[in-house]
Amino acid sequence: MRMSNQAPSDLSLIEPTLDAYADVPGSLIAILQATQDAYGYLPMDAMEHIAERTGTPIATIVGVATFYAQFRLEPVGKYLIMLCQGTACHVNGSELISAAITDELGIDDGQTTDDGLFSLKHVACLGCCSLSPVMMINGQTYSSLTPDKAKKVLRQLAAEAAEGGAA
């Protein structure tokens, strides 16, 4: 993992979580979820700190972190596009949406744009199957997508980000 060039994480962000859960058996996933909420991903030094505080071997922690799809070992962009590739979305053409996003942003599943604005992640079912194809960006769901509609959403978000940056 190329973590050496990453600035050290502010470990105080996860102290409250560790104070509450470090000694509660079975809390590792909850601790990792809180850690990811704090940093946007799971920094290696934070996982080492969790290992120390909970007395869990680091291998166990990384093992859990890599088992579950939710956990990320790299930072993600400002907007995380979760594109559904579930059955209903597949049948209704989610592959075309995926191609449209790649065409618009130049990123594939698991990648982040160079400007750090967008990350793309394929997921299996967001539970809005009857409005498929569907994607969720930072908690907001966009349904009944067409390649054009998906591109429009991305352009709008990019424009909003540019405005926000200038302000």
Partner: peptide, 20 residues
């Protein structure tokens, strides 16, 4: 945390215990 196999009841229990 996102793993289909965790719907299987014994895997779900492992996950509840904070494991893979």
């Amino acid at each position: 945390a996102g793993a289909f196999v965790c719907g299987e009841e014994t895997a779900l229990i492992e996950s509840l215990e904070g494991k893979r």
